[in-house]
Computed example of a mutant assay.
Amino acid sequence: MPVIDYDCEFARTSGQIDLVSIGMVNEQDRRYYAISRECDLSALLANDWLMRNVVSTLPLTLGTGPDGDLLAWDPDKPDFDKVKTRAQIAREVEDFALDTAHRDRTGMLPHVELRANYGAYDHVALCQLFGTMMDLPEGFPMWSHDIQQEAERLGLSGADLPQQASGQHNALADALHQQEIRRWLAQRAEYQS
C-alpha cells in the first residue's frame, strides 16, 4: 500500500482545528508543502506556543497596528509561494495522493496509508480540508497510522526514537523526520521478528 507521511500545524479556535500548514512526503521522496492563507492569524498571535514555535517557520511579519500586535503575510519571506487557499490545498493534497497511489487495472484507486506522529488532530485538520470525514476523496483512509503507537508496540518511548536535528514545527520538515522515524521503526520491527 502506498504510504504518505504527513504533518499539520494548526491552531485551535473556538473549539475548531484551524489548519495552518501541511507537509507531506511519499516513498518516492515527492514532497508537498502548503500554508493556509485562510488560517486565523489572530489565533496564532494569541497562542504563545504557536508564536514561539510555528510562526517563525511561516512567511509572516509581526508588526503593530492601532489595536496592538498583528501578523501579516510577507511576500519577501521564504515559502510565500506556498501560501494558498484551503480549496487549492485540498485539490493539491488530493493530486499528491493520486500521484502516490496509482490506479490498478480495474481503474480503482488503492487506498494510501497515512502516517503521522501524534496524528489525531492532524487527521482532523486533513479531513476538514474536504469537509467532513465522509467527504474524503476516493482512496483516502478515515484514519492515520500513528508513529507513537508503533513505537509503543515495539516497547520504545519517544526518547528512544531518532531526534529531529532542525526544522521542528515546519510541517514539511516534520513530515520528513516522521518518515525517517517510521523507517527506523520498521527496521526495529523486522529485527524483533
Rank of each mutant, 00 (worst) to 15 (best):
L114Q: 05
T85S: 15
G68I: 12
Y118R: 10
R91S: 04
P110L: 07
P110Y: 02
Q128V: 03
G63Q: 11
Q163S: 09
N47H: 12
S157R: 12
H123P: 04
Y118G: 15
R115N: 11
G107F: 12
R86Y: 01
L58N: 03
E152V: 05
G119Y: 00
P59T: 08
A101Q: 07
D81G: 06
A125N: 07
G155Y: 04
A90Y: 10
P75L: 04
A90T: 05
V83Y: 10
G139I: 09
D67H: 13
A101F: 03
T132S: 15
E138K: 08
H123E: 02
P59R: 06
P66Y: 10
L126A: 07
L114V: 03
N47K: 06
S42M: 08
S42D: 13
R153S: 14
L62I: 10
A151T: 01
D99P: 00
S42H: 07
N47P: 03
V93F: 04
T106H: 09
M133Y: 13
C39Q: 07
D79C: 09
G68H: 13
A97E: 04
G139M: 08
R91M: 05
H123G: 00
D74I: 02
T61Q: 07
L44Y: 06
I147W: 00
K84N: 11
E150R: 11
D160Q: 06
V54M: 05
L71N: 07
A97G: 03
E92S: 02
Q149I: 15
L98F: 09
P141N: 09
Q149S: 14
G158Y: 10
N53R: 08
M133S: 14
D48R: 14
K77H: 02
M133N: 08
K84E: 15
T85A: 11
Q168S: 10
M134Y: 10
Y121P: 01
K77A: 15
Q148G: 09
Q128F: 00
L109E: 13
L98E: 14
L161M: 13
A97I: 01
D40P: 00
S42L: 07
L58W: 07
W49G: 03
W49S: 10
K77W: 00
R91P: 00
V55S: 06
G158S: 12
I147L: 15
H145V: 14
L129H: 00
R52G: 03
P78H: 00
A125W: 01
D99L: 13
M108T: 13
V93K: 03
W73T: 05
L114P: 01
K82R: 14
V55W: 07
D104V: 13
L114G: 05
G158Q: 14
L109Q: 15
D122P: 01
P110Q: 05
T61G: 06
A72M: 06
E152T: 09
W143D: 11
F96C: 00
G131E: 04
W49V: 05
